[in-house]
């Protein structure tokens, strides 16, 4: 029970802080809207209509974009936040906490999801008004988004582990975040690349969501999404803890 309360406290700290730091929220929303506008205006998702036999390709693109937004928030929560906390001197509070540090960062992840969902709703409404995208949400879509976000959080933890040891990983994080847009079939990619990157939770998530929208849901895609997300989360947690142990041994934590 105390563990849940600690996690809730982490969520509350982040949400309250985000509300106070309104400029960050507005800036994120602007960037995501401009980026989506660029994709919509360049008709980036046309081939998705053929692939999923579903006419509203802009809808298919939008839902992939939402998945990507949540994915990059998950990666940032792990990699950038840990680095920020090390620089701010609050990371040791978490290290000396009674609870596993990853659990506290899952609290941060939940707060980031909540904030990103608010941005998502605004962007989705804008997409409906401007590009006449049909909005549909169901349990499958919601579940896929959440599962994928946790899987991507695992990838973020992996980068965070590297950040503990090598510090300057901002460029790496940015490359991963931007790369995901183009290799995970968020913006249509080749079938071969989509197959190769299916191991990335976001690729599987895009498939599950789009099949659900097109009315061709299959459990295989969902099982793959769950399996890959669980795998990445486990890899992320193990790698992060190993890197933390090595950073403690090398003295990397003292150099921030």
């Amino acid at each position: 029970m105390k563990l849940i309360r600690a996690m809730l406290s982490e969520i509350k700290m982040d949400l309250v802080s985000a509300v106070r730091y309104r400029f960050g929220f507005i800036s994120d929303m602007t960037v995501f809207t401009v980026f989506l506008a660029f994709l919509m205006l360049s008709n980036s998702g046309v081939s998705l209509a053929e692939k999923y036999s579903y006419a509203d390709y802009k809808g298919l693109l939008l839902y992939g974009y939402i998945g990507w937004m949540l994915a990059i928030a998950a990666i940032s929560t792990a990699s950038n936040e840990i680095k920020n906390e090390l620089q701010r001197g609050t990371f040791y509070l978490k290290m000396n906490s009674r609870y596993p540090i990853v659990v506290l960062y899952i609290g941060k992840l939940i707060a980031a999801i909540v904030i990103q969902l608010v941005i998502t709703v605004i962007i989705a409404v804008l997409a409906k008004l401007i590009w006449k995208v049909a909005l549909r949400f169901n349990a499958m879509i919601l579940a896929a988004l959440i599962i994928s976000t946790f899987g991507m959080f695992g990838i973020g933890l992996l980068i965070a582990g590297v950040a503990l040891l090598h510090k300057r990983t901002g460029a790496l994080t940015l490359i991963v975040q931007m790369g995901l847009l183009f290799i995970t079939d968020t913006v249509p990619t080749s079938d071969l690349l989509a197959k190769i990157t299916q191991v990335v939770p976001l690729t599987s998530c895009n498939e599950v969501i789009r099949k659900s929208l097109a009315g061709t849901s299959d459990t295989r895609a969902l099982i793959l999404l769950i399996a890959f997300s669980a795998l990445w989360l486990a890899i992320g947690i193990i790698a992060f803890n190993l890197c933390l142990k090595k950073a403690k041994k090398n003295g990397n934590l003292l150099m921030y």
Partner: peptide, 21 residues
């Protein structure tokens, strides 16, 4: 260092207490 700048002293106290069990 040591504290969360965008939160109040009260919120920091509550947080530190919570993660300390």
């Amino acid at each position: 260092k040591n504290l969360y700048a965008k939160n109040t002293v009260k919120e920091n106290a509550m947080y530190i207490g919570r993660i300390s069990g």
